[in-house]
Write a protein that binds this DNA or RNA. Structure first.
Lengths: 193, 193
DNA sequence: CACATATACTGAACCGGACTCACCTTAGGG
DNA sequence: CCCTAAGGTGAGTCCGGTTCAGTATATGTG
């Protein structure tokens, strides 16, 4: 039941306008108030709320595609690199994406460090992608065992939520440390917790 | 000029009451609204704001002592353990403290992952403490070089800001990974970035 | 084409929570 | 005692997200 009724023409138009306005507002990280987004879309707040249950839902929707792409990346990286290199690349990719816009950072943080049900799907998909990455690394004896995608997801949450002054540089450094930590104690070296 | 004028008796009493009420409210993590704290202290909001510029300042003050103790810990740990063990212990200690109360988590996060000027002192003190810890580890060839206290501070911010469901267990795991990451690539093993 | 009505839009109002300020109270020195 | 500056009060403001009664219109139908 994906289409109980196919959306009236004006409704579809407004929905698009809202998503576009939101995307734009989230990129230019002028504070993106709900009112402001509605105004930019040439629409009243009420309309925004007809289409999206909550501000958070709007964020989720705006970044849905991008997040989906992100979730598909590990598989692609695994096809081309050793699992540990794939992991490193993925971590840096996340930092980069978080840097692109405040909105994307918000989205990633909500996926990673909260329980907000709006992001349940994204969270699960992301955890699965990470699990694959980790499993491949473990199988190859390159990464330690016993770390779930969920744990790693939450570890990354910290990185994505950073907004302080020189955060990006620091985030990269931290991603590196996490990466090294996961390699440390790989099967070839022994030492399970 | 620490005491331009020594605070009137009732003022001092109220200040104490506010700190006590705040401490209590932050521990029982019932949402600790400013109004609620004032009420518990038997005082009006205005009075709260006479003593503390902002809610954040109140948080900072409540945890000032605790944070100071925390900042003193690395030195103590270094006196008793090898630097890498000291680091591990400190990371776990932080998780533990963040777990004690939402307020302490808030405080730690503000110290670590924001630029809020209210926490400038704490931040600097904490960074210095971490620098000592790191320097000792580097000198002993147990920890990698090139990581500043500030970077580590921010990495920990992620841990402290986690509030999702099974966060504590995950936080411990992540702390472990960070710890291993810092050991990996120590001087004895080479590999500077 | 008229019109019925489900669907959609509007925006003023509401709500929660941090913060302010014009006015009142009182501690405590002289 | 009493004067007055330090201190306290709490209704009110501000800010953002969210709601809902009232109004407009797209579209299927006769």
């Amino acid at each position: 039941m994906p289409s109980p009724r196919p959306l009236r023409a004006d409704a579809r138009r407004n929905r698009e306008a809202l998503l576009a306005a939101a995307r734009e507002a989230f990129l230019a990280d002028d504070d993106a108030h709900v009112e402001e987004i509605a105004r930019r879309a040439g629409v009243a707040v009420g309309t925004l709320y007809r289409h999206f249950d909550t501000r958070e839902a709007l964020v989720a929707e705006v970044y849905r595609q991008e997040v989906a792409d992100l979730c598909a990346t590990p598989a692609r990286l695994l096809a081309e690199h050793a699992p540990d290199e794939a992991l490193r690349a993925f971590l840096l990719l996340l930092v980069e994406h978080a840097a692109v816009s405040r909105g994307m950072g918000e989205a990633l943080e909500s996926i990673m460090a909260t329980d907000s049900p709006v992001f349940d799907d994204a969270r699960e998909e992301m955890a699965r992608a990470l699990d694959d990455l980790l499993a491949a690394g473990v199988a190859a004896g390159l990464l330690r065992d016993g770390v779930t995608g969920r744990v790693l997801l939450r570890g990354l949450g910290g990185i994505c939520s950073m907004r302080a002054n020189g955060w990006q540089e620091d985030a990269i450094r931290i991603a590196t440390i996490l990466h090294d930590g996961l390699r440390h104690g790989a099967a070839s070296a022994g030492s399970h917790p």
